[in-house]
Design a protein around this nucleic acid. Structure first.
Lengths: 298, 298
DNA sequence: CCAGATTTGCTCAGGATGAGAAAAAGGAAG
DNA sequence: CTTCCTTTTTCTCATCCTGAGCAAATCTGG
């Protein structure tokens, strides 16, 4: 069984390749994604011939298009299925997740306007939309797909898992509840160009999963911050809340942060101590091996 | 801040795109990778214009080149940095991990011939090679990179983490210990064409990480198997051993398997009960959410 | 001064995990 | 047939991690 040349094949596969960026930041307690236009579109650009690495290419065009210097960058997934955008031609998009410091302005779309069901933090809109979605899913899933549906939506005793955002989006897609052609509703969210909403869902899934075993949140934080502020950012990304004493316990016992000595009096209650990320320790470790809690409660 | 058209850019980025497959199987207690030639080369093929999905394209050319029908397939990473193969031209490779049932023959290379230091199971060759590698790394890392080195190699009180295979390969690369041009040594392994060994390391990392939270091993198992056999396969992929009673406890309590009623008398000791994967339960769940133990002992 | 809000620390139960001991059940060698 | 060896299988125990609740400490704002 000899493996032939890898130039094997009948079709010469020369296609156009784009880079697509999902740039995330947290503004107050709302996560935002860089996407402008109507319908919204993720920033994208071509591979640059002169750039040796993909990441450099990505950073450059995000900087040019938006003026933003990306901190953390991670490759997500390469989308290349036929008919992605409606055209017959194949279009290859290499997608990246990037984290940037807080910023607002046009082009910064609220993440949960795109995927409203992913925000489970207590609030006025949360419950109404949830009921509506769950009803629609139950109707569609019955009876064949109900096990999968209740697993993904944390029904019937299953826990809600934040990191399954992509799988939930895909189920909604199959159920016809997030067709990009339809109008935006309160519960099913705002549509985007082509398959960009799927790419955002991919990014959210990956970000939430990464949060559980790598301290990437610090890419979104200023140099000094309170533990309460850190908790708010984590909860914003996870889309659910955590038990405050347990959160600080975990943050503390991993030695992730060290006090700066300063305090913040603007928190409304007892003043909070300021901390900084213990970077010296963790750049060496390639940022692997220490985790922050993401809720996985019922 | 308006985001311009995503057709923005000075260079038209039309490049050739290949699919590369890392097909893994376990033969006895040695993991194998589909790669033939000298130096060895992973099976690769072009995107097929007529295939709608990448996975379908991949399955087809792996079937054509090797006669193998892939079970599990997962996208790994897209390599596209300039000068990957030594040429100036950019070459984009979308890499996939595939799992196949046990098979031998030419073309099936032993995985740990390529990455010998990743096999930590007790054995004659293991200790000798380990000492040699650790000595070389320590010499190179001192003193700046010693924290990173000891973290990755489980030295100075750090645990050995099987899933960091890629990071270990990259450190060895930086240290000049796995230059593909040099001759294969007992400790640093056999070289491959272009950056294929990096792709194999990527696959191993991903496979080991996946093993910890998704029951993908079953893609490598026959329909009926003993728990001892399952443990051997997991240990082969993880490259280290686990405590037998704990392994069976975990497998049992997750409800992953169910007894077929049969027994296997060929194990050399007390006959072992045969089990099958409880597939009905887990296809529904999208194969998420149940895990098999991978050792992370000191 | 009081009410409210937030930070901070402590405790406790339950589950998961690492490690060891040992019984059960067969095959192989003598 | 008996003895030894090997593998499977079941328990037990200590420890750590995690979820959850209670309460004290400390400030701001009215």
């Amino acid at each position: 069984m000899e493996v032939p040349s890898h130039r094997y094949g009948v079709t010469v596969s020369t296609v156009r390749v784009d880079l697509v960026a999902v740039v995330v930041s947290v503004d107050g307690q709302t996560p935002r994604v860089l996407a402008a236009g109507a319908p919204r579109r993720l920033p994208a650009g071509p591979l640059r011939a002169e750039q040796t690495s993909l990441q450099a290419s990505l950073r450059e065009f995000v900087l040019e298009q938006t003026g933003h210097r990306l901190g953390f960058v991670e490759q997500l997934y390469t989308f290349a299925d036929l008919g992605r955008g409606g055209h017959a031609a194949r279009e290859v998009s290499i997608s990246y997740l990037g984290l940037a410091h807080a910023d607002t302005g046009p082009g910064w779309t609220r993440l949960y306007d795109l995927l409203p069901w992913e925000d489970r933090r207590p609030g006025p809109r949360a419950d109404a939309g949830r009921v509506e979605i769950v009803r629609a899913i139950r109707a569609w899933a019955r009876p064949d797909r109900s096990a999968r549906a209740s697993f993904l939506w944390g029904l019937d005793g299953h826990p809600w898992r934040p990191e399954l955002a992509l799988q939930r989006y895909e189920l909604l897609w199959e159920a016809g509840l997030v067709a990009e052609s339809s109008d935006a509703t309160e519960a099913t969210g705002e549509g985007m160009v082509q398959d960009h909403r799927r790419i955002v869902a991919t990014a959210l899934s990956r970000l939430r999963a990464t949060l559980q075993y790598r301290p990437v949140v610090f890419e979104l934080m200023p140099d000094a911050f309170t533990r309460g502020r850190l908790q708010v950012v984590v909860e914003a990304l996870a889309g659910s809340t955590v038990h405050t004493p347990n959160f600080r316990r975990l943050v503390g016992q991993h030695g992730l942060v060290e006090p700066t000595g300063g305090v913040d009096h603007g928190t409304g209650g007892r003043p909070a101590r300021l901390y900084r990320f213990h970077r010296a320790l963790f750049t060496e470790r390639d940022l692997v091996g220490t985790k922050l809690p993401v809720p996985r409660a019922r």
